[in-house]
């Protein structure tokens, strides 16, 4: 099937198998390997990306379902020398160790803060329940999200702005 979609602001047109998962499209066809696959059951969230500004688990979205939509991955959020406020907060608060869950965790955070710009600690924990991390015990991830929420209210721009 032919599918047309926008990935990190770039228009893409591709012929894909109907069963091709969005995460595999991003990784193998677009060369965007920040999103990872950590489970088989939509449990871990390592593959989280934004679809039209809302966080989704890209292992549970078919590429063809994303047709006509804007996909934003961690690569589209910021660059090593110019981190997005959420990415910067994760570094400042040491909210990552091995890094495998991190791109998904960052994108879930962007999605969470878009919906609730000033969450409580409890709301952060509930909001990230679908994103698993085995290294940090979540302590510094929660701190990073709270810090990002507090940083000048610009922590969570809509995905369209991010990828534009």
């Amino acid at each position: 099937m032919r599918v047309e979609l926008t990935v990190n602001g770039e228009h893409r047109s591709a012929e894909v198998e109907p069963r091709l998962l969005l995460v595999h499209f991003l990784r193998e066809r677009c060369g965007l390997r920040a999103a990872n696959v950590g489970c088989d059951t939509t449990s871990c969230g390592a593959c989280t990306v934004l679809l039209d500004g809302k966080s989704v688990k890209s292992c549970t979205v078919l590429t063809v379902q994303a047709a006509g939509q804007q996909v934003t991955t961690a690569e589209g959020l910021g660059e090593p020398g110019n981190l997005h406020p959420v990415q910067a907060a994760f570094q400042r608060e040491h909210g990552l160790q091995c890094g495998f869950c991190t791109p998904g965790m960052v994108m879930a955070t962007v999605g969470l803060l878009a919906e609730n710009p000033n969450p409580t600690e409890e709301q952060v924990r509930e909001g990230l329940e679908g994103n698993l991390c085995r290294c940090t015990g979540y302590h510094n991830i929660v701190r990073a999200v709270l810090a990002a929420a507090g940083s000048a209210g610009q922590a969570a721009p809509a995905a369209a702005e991010v990828s534009a």
Partner: peptide
């Protein structure tokens, strides 16, 4: 001292075995 390895992990992501392009 903040981790120097973080900016890469936070943007392009780490290069894990499945990610290796060689």
């Amino acid at each position: 001292v903040l981790r120097t390895e973080d900016p890469r992990f936070l943007t392009t992501g780490g290069v894990y075995t499945e990610d290796v392009v060689d």
